[in-house]
């Protein structure tokens, strides 16, 4: 009884530093400008300024950024799922020369983040005049070493007898991948897709390197520009913008919590 109480007490105390920033972000986003800086902070937005949201939305071309983020994230995740499924299929279910070497080659890519290769990749894209394009944003992430590794593990766990049964049922090759391996690996697929969506929706570094044009900038870049401009002044608008940039991921997370936790259980990469 005492232990249970102590557990709750510590966990709830821990929530304070965790949740206070979220609360403060929400409250600030609803304050009128004159209520932002007060001698004693106002803990409740007495006169909720809902206007802050449309104001913040139009402070930068956020509509365009939103659209770009959706396009880029969708293209990346779709491409990763397709390419990783095919590569993992080969690595998990075929015997061929160089299989081990290729597997390790893929795993090795995990330790070479874009923060190391960005100078070279920037130059390559610049040489082909591809900067400021969806292609530049998507291409480096079109394949995923991590997704390939994850799906390989999932596919390899499917017993051989099932593959035999499927062959006798007239289902082999890509049909086997489609009808048996992918449906059986659904939890892994969903978990990986969610991790990828979060990672690329939130990605700030790479879009910063290859975009300098609002036509292709994504939400994090837009918000980053807003941060640069609005510091020391319109915190209420900045918080409103931060909320609508984060909201899709927070929403996705709370809806698909089960899969997120599973993603971590089986995989563990940072989102």
């Amino acid at each position: 009884m005492m232990r249970r109480f102590a557990t709750y007490a510590v966990l709830v105390a821990g929530l304070f530093p965790l949740l206070l920033p979220f609360y403060w972000m929400a409250v600030t986003s609803l304050k009128a400008k004159r209520d932002v800086f007060t001698a004693t902070p106002q803990w409740l937005p007495l006169h909720p300024a809902w206007d802050n949201y449309p104001l913040a939305w139009s402070a930068e071309p956020f509509g365009r950024f939103f659209f770009n983020s959706i396009v880029v994230t969708t293209l990346i995740v779709a491409s990763q799922l397709v390419l990783a499924s095919l590569a993992a299929f080969a690595l998990a279910r075929f015997e061929f020369r160089g299989r081990r070497a290729i597997f390790w080659l893929v795993v090795a890519a995990l330790i070479v983040p874009v923060q190391i290769t960005f100078v070279a990749n920037f130059m390559t894209l610049a040489r082909f005049g591809l900067l400021n394009s969806y292609l530049a944003l998507v291409a480096p992430y079109a394949a995923s070493a991590f997704g390939t590794f994850l799906l390989r593990q999932a596919f390899a766990a499917v017993p051989r007898q099932l593959e035999d049964a499927a062959r006798l049922d007239g289902c082999s090759g890509l049909a086997f991948l489609w009808h048996v391996l992918l449906p059986l690996s659904r939890p892994t697929l969903i978990a990986f897709a969610l991790v990828a969506v979060v990672a690329h929706w939130n990605d700030y570094f790479w879009p910063l390197i290859v975009t300098n044009n609002n036509a292709v900038r994504t939400l994090p870049i837009g918000l980053g520009m807003f941060v640069g401009q609005e510091v020391t002044t319109d915190w209420n608008l900045l918080m409103a913008a931060s909320i609508f940039v984060s909201a899709p991921m927070l929403l996705l997370f709370f809806l698909m919590q089960r899969y997120f936790v599973r993603a971590r259980l089986h995989t563990g990469i940072r989102g």
Binding site: P159, Q161, L162, D164, A165, A166, R167, L168, D169, G170, C171, S172, H179, V180, P183, L184, R186
Partner: peptide
Amino acid sequence: PPEGRNIAMVFQDYALYPHMTVYQNMAFG
């Protein structure tokens, strides 16, 4: 090829498709 041989096999571990219903398992082939 295996699917053309008109042969059916019962496996040691049954090898039922876990994501399909009994009906779908039987209808698949």
